[in-house]
Nucleic acid binder design. Structure first.
Lengths: 119, 119
DNA sequence: CCTCAACATAACCATATGGTTATGAATGAT
DNA sequence: ATCATTCATAACCATATGGTTATGTTGAGG
């Protein structure tokens, strides 16, 4: 497994995806969208936040490839684009496998060594 | 499943974890640490970046609960703390399940409706 | 055609982020 | 005791982020 930038998933993608997920409002928006597509007004409803703020968050999610926008009249409904979410999942799962595989070795290694003071 | 802040995982945790993962340097640091614990100097080696910059990144990772620090003499080696990584994984996997479950419904729903122009 | 509704965009602001250089503190070695 | 090494912290800077209000744009309906 390759754990650096030579992976098929571009580092910039992961930057955008993880950063997008780092905001609670945006995670909540994704949760709403998991129930189906929704307009800006609908997405805004649960929040005490201005409409432009929601539009900005949606743009961040769109740039991260996590949602797509349509145009239906004056409405611009958003919907999930799960492919990019799996990129983040993929990285984390790969990382977990890598770490877990290595952890076993490390564990074995530590067990065969004189005890060390940890701090 | 609960997709909001009332989950056992605090929203603030996820904020910190995902934000921490949003930086390529920090992901690279985690990859290095997946091979085993490492000192600041060792972690710094692959980067063209000052030592304080690395220390700052390590603090971000530590605040996110993704690593722990030890103290061995003048060295302060870092090591992975995978439990918090699984929080991010957990959120993403839960989200995927939620979305996938709902996607089926949505798909069925759309199939039973008159065709709509998408944009 | 006029107007309302639904958004987007611009301009602005405060704070956060990611880097730097300079300096300080603690430990190990001589 | 001194000195070098390892790292943390402080101060600073440029840019990004997350919010606001004000305004522009575009399509639907009377």
């Amino acid at each position: 497994m390759v754990m650096n930038d030579s992976t098929s998933t571009q580092a910039a993608d992961l930057d955008a995806i993880f950063s997008a997920l780092g905001d609670p409002t945006r995670r909540a928006l994704l949760c709403q969208l998991a129930k189906g597509e929704a307009s800006v007004a609908q997405l805004r409803a649960p929040f005490e936040m201005s409409q432009p703020a929601i539009s900005k968050h949606l743009k961040v999610l769109e740039n991260a490839g996590l949602i797509t926008r349509a145009t239906r009249g004056t409405s611009r409904p958003a919907r999930l684009h799960a492919a990019h979410l799996s990129e983040a999942l993929g990285w984390l799962e790969d990382f977990r496998k890598f770490w877990q595989g290595n952890f076993t070795q490390l564990d074995t290694l530590l067990a065969s060594m004189p005890q060390q003071k940890e701090d």
